[in-house]
Amino acid sequence: MSPRILFSTTRRVLTQLRHDKRTLALVVLVPVVLLTLVYYLFEKQPGVFNEIGLIMLGLFPFAIMFLITSIAMLRERTSGTLERLLTTPLNKPDLLFGYGLSFGLVAAVQAGVATGLAYWAFNLSTAGTTGLVIVFAVADAILGVALGLFFSAFARTEFQAVQFMPLVVFPQIFLCGLFAPRDQMAGWMQALSKVMPLTYAVQGLQEVGAHVDPTPLMWRDLIIVVGCIVLALSFAAATLRRRTD
């Protein structure tokens, strides 16, 4: 890996985003709109937004970044730029971490805006600090990026790529504890939820919500999420083949 190439690749991805103002606006505004909906949905039920709204702060960046990254990587593949890049001194990690960094930066802005809105407009209250909520939101976003980079390898077309979103993201959302507490699920579902990284991201956020100080469980959850990011990026690197048919 070369810092120079990593930096310029990060910059290039950000430049592409900068030219696509509508996508940038959507990235920031979609969570705001959805969060507003969720707030008014539970307006009459005190305390619910504190739980659901908090989890949403981790889910939006995950789902949105997964989708955007898998399409971006697919484009890189279908436009021939990936093949060309692989004939240059660029190494695979330069590209993958470049995507991780640039989209991570965008995710930080997204998470900052959404979290700010939740706290100040919708009176979200958490026992732990806002900073930790943002840390988890950004980690979730980068998890989405890493999984998106990996799964895009299995899509040949945009039609296929968008369908990985329901396939990869929805089950994780169903089983992460948002809809039903995990300990009330059937055994095999609990087992499934245990191998899904989003489960730990959500659990970490719940820990921040419930405890003033960071708990050991929260740290463990964060480490697991970061571990999954590294794992997904390594798998993504393995699926990036320099030589193809």
Binding site: R12, Q16, S79, R84
Partner: peptide
């Protein structure tokens, strides 16, 4: 240096 048959540059830059 390699020039691919179908142009391979980023259309959005």
């Amino acid at each position: 240096g390699y020039l691919t048959q179908a142009p391979s540059v980023y259309a959005d830059m």
